[in-house]
Amino acid sequence: MRANDEDILASAEEWRRAGRDVAIATVVETWGSAPRPVGSRLVIDGEGNFLGSVSGGCVEGAVVTEALDVIESGAAKLVSFGVADETAWQVGLSCGGRISVFVEKVA
């Protein structure tokens, strides 16, 4: 992780300390030509504001939706996106790669 991703974690901490609900989404696995490497992060608050990226724009919208669920339930989840995935046809990766994203709440 370099400066960019690191600033994102600093923001996550600030947001949480300011009383906002926060979730962190992390790319944990990639196949094919995925746009962002393993370890890339997206930080999301309870109102859907976000920082960072997990795909360079292709699936961030869907990850934010998952993050809002995780904030609500408190339970972490692993979500996958790619051309083989039914939902991914709507929000998929145009490059043809696949990624798994781990979404967790900051408690």
Binding site: L9, A10, E13, V106, A107
Partner: peptide, 14 residues
């Protein structure tokens, strides 16, 4: 992720 863990990561980086 626990807030303490997040804080520890940020402290290590600094």
């Amino acid at each position: 992720m626990k807030l303490e863990t997040l804080a520890a990561l940020n402290a290590a980086r600094r």
